[in-house]
């Protein structure tokens, strides 16, 4: 493990004093955090701590919730993603998302991956699309398993394969950031290990932010860890420090299993 400096010299995303409200209820309270370009960042914390809410504010997924309101500033490469000029569809192509439960479209494996590039106009013709689909599936570590059955339905795959298909779908539109919201919670340990290996492979190509309930997983895959509690960011630091020598009592209680 190489020594990394805690300061993030080249942040991909910067959040400053972010608050998120669901109606009257405040779910996120004054969170500021930088997400590194070449790093995997893990958000951990007990249920209801706001980690998923905050993740979803990074690509304006909260816009889909009528009562949700976001204040503060979130920038992608210095650009305010909540600015009126921001094209939300473009934003979500640049900041892709993988969800807890694998949710392939009820379409062929090929179309699951090819749909995004096609509607975003990334593939002028079939040959280009073939290349994009293959590359995304290779990167997602799924190509060898599905190359002979691309026409089969994505929903026919196993859970772990479906999740890698969803990652391939996110990758296919060439995003800059991939947000993962508990991507392994519905998977068995082997499928989980494959996703974790994939996250390791993808590091450096995309900025990755992962929300996980599994602290061992956060420890295994990330270089930075942020601990959320009751809507606030309690501690953010190097993963090795957070798990061996956390500075905050609340972080320590949570990761050592003393959280009541």
């Amino acid at each position: 493990m190489t020594q990394e400096d805690l300061t993030i010299s080249d942040p991909k995303m910067k959040a400053h004093s972010v608050n998120v409200f669901y109606g009257e209820k405040q779910a996120i309270n004054d969170v500021s955090i930088d997400v590194g370009t070449d790093l995997v960042t893990a958000f951990i914390g007990p249920s209801g701590c706001g980690k998923s809410t905050f993740l979803r504010s990074l690509n304006r997924m909260n816009d889909t919730v009528a009562s949700a309101r976001v204040t503060g500033q979130i920038e992608l490469d210095g650009e305010d993603i909540y600015a009126p000029s921001m094209d939300v569809v473009q934003l979500r192509a640049r900041v892709g998302m993988v969800f807890q439960k694998p949710n392939p479209f009820p379409k062929s494996i090929y179309d699951n991956v090819g749909y995004g590039p096609r509607i975003h106009g990334l593939a002028p013709n079939k040959a280009d699309l073939d290349v994009i689909v293959e590359r995304a599936l290779v990167r997602a570590g799924l190509w060898d398993e599905v190359k002979d059955r691309l026409a089969e339905s994505g929903t026919a795959l196993s859970g772990g394969q479906q999740q890698r298909l969803c990652i391939a779908r996110a990758i296919a539109v060439d995003p800059e950031v991939i947000l993962m919201d508990e991507p392994c919670s519905a998977l068995d340990p082997i499928a989980t290990a494959k996703i974790e290996e994939l996250i390791h492979e993808l590091r450096g190509k995309y900025a990755i932010v992962i929300v996980t309930h599994n602290m061992q997983q956060a420890a295994r895959v990330s270089q930075r860890t942020a601990f959320f509690h009751l809507g606030t960011l309690v501690e953010y630091g190097k993963t090795t420090d957070i798990f061996t020598n956390p500075r905050q009592e609340r972080t320590k209680d949570y990761i050592t299993g003393r959280y009541g």
Partner: peptide, 9 residues
């Protein structure tokens, strides 16, 4: 138990 932090130390 996969101890963490002060437990691991």
């Amino acid at each position: 138990r996969a101890p963490m932090a002060d437990d691991l130390r």
